[in-house]
């Protein structure tokens, strides 16, 4: 039987830097989509609280506790990251999406200047601070964008990894060139 090696969809594409900006692999390990069954939102929140100290997040928010995070990703849906979804079995639709996403980390001073070239949502810290997330378009790609300290974590579909790195890299170079 063949020996298979797991590789990140960003293998060979990052790290990338331009001026003060860097783009790297966020190294997110386990992603589970959690969609509470009808009428089970409270039960899901209670189970998350008991197992991980989390709750089902309100729209556009992230709840973190240690390594575990839960990120709102749409109507009636959130991604549980870095935590075991087993306690939610039977009250929510659970789908392992760990291999489905490429997760980038963008850092640099006022990194929102870079994303402003590709994203039509205001991501400045005053309105998009810690614990904020948006589902929006990055260029023509669907994406999930989270505030992460001074920078951002950017989720795109695995198949979009190359395009995302190209587009963000282009924006990084353009903003860096303006000084």
């Amino acid at each position: 039987m063949a020996e298979l090696l797991a590789t990140s969809p960003l293998e060979g594409l990052v790290p990338l830097s331009a001026g003060p900006f860097t783009l790297s692999d966020a190294g997110v390990a386990r992603i589970t989509s959690v969609a509470p069954f009808a009428g089970k939102e409270k039960a899901v929140s209670a189970a998350l609280k008991k197992a991980h100290g989390l709750a089902f997040p309100a729209p556009n928010t992230v709840i973190s506790k240690g390594e575990a995070r839960i990120v709102w990703t749409g109507r009636g849906q959130a991604f549980l990251i870095g935590a075991d979804p087993a306690p939610l079995a039977g009250i929510a639709a659970l789908t392992d999406q760990s291999d489905g996403w490429a997760v980038l980390r963008l850092d640099g001073p006022e990194a929102e200047r870079v994303l402003a070239r590709k994203v039509a949502v205001d991501l400045r810290p005053a309105v998009f601070g810690e614990g904020a997330v948006v589902r929006t378009a990055l260029g023509h790609m669907m994406s999930v964008i989270l505030r992460a300290g001074a920078g951002f974590e950017i989720f795109v579909f695995r198949s979009m990894a190359h395009t995302a790195v190209h587009e963000i890299g282009e924006a990084m170079r353009a903003v860096a060139a303006r000084g």
């Binding site: 990703t73 749409g74 109507r75 849906q77 589902r135 929006t136 378009a137």
Partner: peptide
Amino acid sequence: PAGITRDLWHHEMGCSA
């Protein structure tokens, strides 16, 4: 209508509602 109309939109790049 010339005026008020109601239609369906899908937030496909956002929350999928």
